[in-house]
């Protein structure tokens, strides 16, 4: 008898709860487009945010709604984007690949340090202590916070302690832009090959005391390409809305601060740029 009561009680309770679940399932049902799951499966799951959405799933929702075109995802391969486009029956859309560019070239062989920094190995930590000890107040500190934060192994520190961006791997997610305490990174379309690799607001010999490859604000590039380049705060500013596929402005730069970045990520300097032959590290105060 006791067993029967138990079975009946539990059985009854089970049935009641099951009924509630069934009702809840019907009443509270939210329709979700099944294509969202499929599209999300096709995306690279990097959740990098380069498309402007917080992650791959919100981007997939936007794709299915038709708010975005698959080309906005710069991490996917060409085939991946086409696959999504075919599945959704939309145009793949083309988004020009964008990459992170660094506005400094002052490695340890060309830029002096005012002081040695000792402590936690992090640019952000060093920047809080007297600016990190680098001679140039605006220059790269070279502790590699950007290399560490990059999820795609696109940034590697070269022999002189300057981060180099691998254009093929960079997805323009912007993590390095955020982490750099000196704000040296910015995101640019790959076609922006004419590039000013300096952020020093100083002018003249003051720059050269700290760094051999800094911009001295001589203004020769602005003279050679008056429509394209203007000097603002002692730095050339390139107007990328004009035709900038020209190597003319770099030719007369005396320090090689304005450069041409070729497809392989190599840096081409102008003919008159000072040749840097030193390979070793500069000592404190030496220039």
């Amino acid at each position: 008898m006791t067993i029967l009561t138990a079975i009946l009680a539990l059985g009854g309770l089970t049935l009641l709860l099951a009924l509630m679940l069934i009702i809840a399932n019907k009443k509270l049902y939210v329709y979700e487009d099944p294509r969202i799951d499929v599209v999300e499966g096709m995306l690279p799951h990097a959740n990098c945010g380069a498309c402007g959405y917080p992650g791959c799933r919100p981007f997939a929702e936007a794709l299915v709604k038709g708010e975005m075109l698959p080309g906005k995802c710069t991490v996917s391969s060409e085939e991946g984007r086409n696959e999504i486009a075919t599945y959704l029956g939309v145009d793949a859309g083309s988004e020009e690949k964008r990459v992170a560019r660094l506005a400094c070239a002052g490695g340890i062989n060309v830029a002096i340090n005012r002081a040695n920094y000792e402590g936690m190995s992090s640019c952000r930590g060093a920047a809080l202590i007297s600016g990190g000890g680098k001679g140039c107040s605006w220059g790269c500190l070279g502790h590699g916070d950007c290399e560490e934060v990059c999820d795609f192994d696109a940034i590697s520190m070269n022999a002189f302690g300057i981060p180099v961006v691998d254009e093929a791997k960079c997805t323009a997610c912007g993590d390095c832009v955020e982490v750099c305490p000196k704000d040296l990174f910015s995101i640019h379309p790959v076609s922006h090959r004419l590039w000013v690799a300096c952020k020093s607001l100083e002018a003249g010999d003051g720059v050269l005391e700290d760094c051999e490859v800094g911009c001295t604000a001589c203004g020769k590039c602005a003279m050679d390409a008056p429509n394209l380049i203007t000097m603002i705060h002692n730095l050339p500013v390139i107007n990328y809305s004009k035709n900038h596929q020209t190597q003319v402005p770099i030719q007369r730069c005396p320090t090689g601060a304005i450069v041409w970045i070729d497809e392989k990520g190599g840096v081409i300097k102008g003919a008159e740029a000072k040749k840097i032959i030193r390979k070793g590290k500069l000592k404190i105060g030496e220039s």
Binding site: M120, S122, R124, L128
Partner: peptide, 13 residues
């Protein structure tokens, strides 16, 4: 351990 430097950085962030 440079604790105070960690905290200075953390506070700034």
């Amino acid at each position: 351990i440079p604790l105070v430097q960690y905290f200075r950085l953390s506070k700034a962030l």
